[in-house]
Each structure stands twice: as structure tokens, then as C-alpha cells.
């Protein structure tokens, strides 16, 4: 699991639990199979799902705080597929094709499997099946939620509120060369294209990466001096380091000016724009901050090594 899922989604889920929601973490095994994860091998997908459950538990989202539900539980209920069909009747195949970005795929993909057209309908059906007031996701899922809300209006089922978090940028930043089409809005399209994703390991920091690995990955990250736009390291300060609204200190050698303390993200951003902070110091400190944020996860997997070992066996096969 990468830090986008663990730290951005994870933090938001914790907020919702604290705000008194009954929160469901939904392990979409069927959807993973449709999206060809592990070549559609349900056994491997289930192993990955269990690992995800352990990751969320490691982050503090234990089974007493959230409910874990598998897609296959819903899929075996008698009326689930009727729901999917009723939703499918409220929308067109063309619209379902334009929803491919929710599967991480380009809207203009040719030769799409028919099953991929069921995917957004299933995502909508899941929401109504679980009787939800609020559906949460990264902004890349917005097409599924808009489709679900429209289906709700047409079928007179109570539609959910949609709540969307930002995508965490991969370590390489936004690649202008990626001509992928992930939304009608070109800005959102490039944000979705640049997201941290496990399919690009060098672009991704994993929850259980050692502090040394985190430091190494950040050292190679895109981080132009004085530029904050489309700078992933700066974004990590905004979305992760300052999330708790506490001041952040950048440790810095005395010979380069000594430590810098910032009460808000804006202060750090301004200092970086003037060149007061060197990219090297920005990166080294983010590595330290991330290692701290993830210490609990490493400790958890030290105590429960088996689910992580199972995942690593899957990866090498």
C-alpha cells in the first residue's frame, strides 16, 4: 500500500470515524478482478485484500473502529445484480466508457472488455446496497459518484453525498509527455495521470518502506529549486506534514543556516519560493517526517510479518 492510500485516505477515514460516522472500508475484490489485477486471480486478490486490511489496522483503523466489507459479500446477495442492472439502465455504454479513469484507465482505450462497463454500475450498486449517506474517494473516482447520484435521482433511491480527496503526486511529478485522457478537464486529467501508483514502483513510497529507502526515493524525487507548482515534495508538506496543524521544523546544518521552523504550510511555501530552503533540505526532512508518520506501521508488521510476507511472495511470482 502506498502513502497516498495510507496517509491521505487513512487520515480522512479517521476524521470521519472521529466525527461519528459508521465507516465501512470496502475491499473491492470483484472490481479488482474486472480490472485485471493479478490477471484476475481471486486468490491473489484476496491475499492483497487481507494485506490492505492489515495496513489500515496498522494505521489505527482497527475492526472496532471501522467495518470491513468485501465486494464478494455484496455480490452474493440475491438483489445485488438486479441493482446493477437497474443502474445500468439509467446510463449509456458511452458514459460507462468515459468512466474508465475510475479504473485507472484512459477514457480513449480501444478494445475494452465488456465487464469494464459493469464496473461503474457495480460501484454505484455497492453504495446503494450498503445504504450509505456519504461515499468517499480520491477525486479520480468522481465520475463513479456522479453516475451513482444520477442513478439515484432516476430510480428514486436516496443518493449519497460524494466526498473527494486530492490525489497524491508521484515522486516524479507531472509528466507533460503523458498524453493520457483521464478527464474532460485537462488539468484534472494530468493530476490523475501523475498520481502515486503502485504500477510505477520508482514513483511510489510504500507504507512499510524503511527510513533508508524513503530517504533514497526522495533524494531522486523531482523538486526544482524555488518552484512550488507541480512539485511533489512541496505537496507532501502541504497534504501530509502540516495536516495536524502543528508547526514543522526543518533540521538543517548550522553551516547552512541552522534549523528553520514554520507554523503553517504557507510560511514554508513562501520560504521555498525565495530560495531560503534548498531542495536537499526539503527532501531530507520530508524523509524524516514520513519515517516518523509510518513508524507505527513498521512496528505493526514487525509483530505481524506474515501478511506482508505473503504479499511479497505474490509480487515475485
Amino acid at each position: 500500500m502506498h502513502i497516498g492510500t495510507g496517509l491521505v485516505c487513512g487520515a480522512k477515514i479517521k476524521d470521519m470515524v472521529q466525527a461519528g460516522f459508521h465507516f465501512i472500508i470496502f475491499l473491492a475484490d470483484w472490481h479488482s478482478m474486472i480490472n485485471n489485477k493479478y490477471g484476475g486471480d481471486m486468490e491473489k486478490i484476496e491475499t492483497a485484500g487481507e494485506y490492505f486490511k492489515h495496513c489500515f489496522t496498522a494505521l489505527g483503523l482497527t475492526e472496532d473502529k471501522v467495518e470491513y466489507v468485501w465486494a464478494s459479500e455484496l455480490a452474493s446477495k440475491p438483489n445485488y445484480w438486479e441493482r446493477v442492472i437497474r443502474i445500468a439502465k439509467t446510463t449509456t455504454a458511452q458514459r460507462a466508457m468515459r468512466s474508465l479513469p475510475i479504473m485507472g484507465r484512459d477514457m480513449k482505450t480501444q478494445d475494452v472488455e465488456t465487464a469494464s462497463l459493469f464496473y461503474p454500475c457495480m460501484q454505484a450498486a455497492d453504495i446503494f446496497e450498503m445504504n450509505l449517506d456519504v461515499a468517499c474517494a480520491g477525486i479520480d473516482q468522481r465520475k463513479a459518484h456522479v453516475l451513482a447520484r444520477e442513478a439515484g435521482d432516476k430510480l428514486r433511491w436516496e443518493k449519497p453525498v460524494a466526498l473527494h480527496t486530492p490525489m497524491l503526486m508521484g515522486l516524479a511529478g507531472i509528466q507533460r509527455s503523458d498524453k493520457g485522457s483521464y478527464d474532460e478537464d485537462p488539468k484534472l486529467s494530468s493530476v490523475i495521470a501523475a498520481k502515486m501508483s503502485k504500477s510505477k514502483p520508482e514513483n511510489t513510497i510504500l507504507l512499510h518502506d524503511s527510513p533508508e529507502i524513503i530517504e533514497d526515493k526522495l533524494r531522486k524525487a523531482y523538486c526544482p529549486p524555488k518552484i512550488v507548482e507541480e512539485n511533489p515534495v512541496i505537496e507532501y508538506y502541504s497534504l501530509l506534514a502540516f495536516r495536524a496543524n502543528n508547526p514543522v521544523t526543518l533540521d538543517r546544518d548550522q553551516k547552512y543556516g541552522g534549523d528553520l521552523k514554520f507554523s503553517t504550510y504557507k510560511e514554508l511555501e513562501e520560504a521555498y519560493k525565495t530560495g531560503e530552503i534548498h531542495p536537499q533540505d526539503l527532501k531530507a526532512n520530508m524523509a524524516r517526517i514520513l519515517a516518523d508518520l509510518l513508524r507505527g506501521v513498521r512496528e505493526y508488521f514487525d509483530k505481524h510479518p506474515e501478511p506482508l510476507a505473503q504479499m511479497q511472495r505474490l509480487e515475485t511470482r
Binding site: 465507516f23 465501512i24 475491499l27 473491492a28 450498503m130 456519504v134 503502485k198
Partner: peptide
């Protein structure tokens, strides 16, 4: 109130 977050399971 009831809320959810869905995740595909993959490595």
C-alpha cells in the same frame, strides 16, 4: 451516518 471508502486490492 454511514460512509464508505472502496479500495481495489492489489500490490
Amino acid at each position: 451516518p454511514r460512509a464508505y471508502w472502496g479500495f481495489e486490492c492489489s500490490g
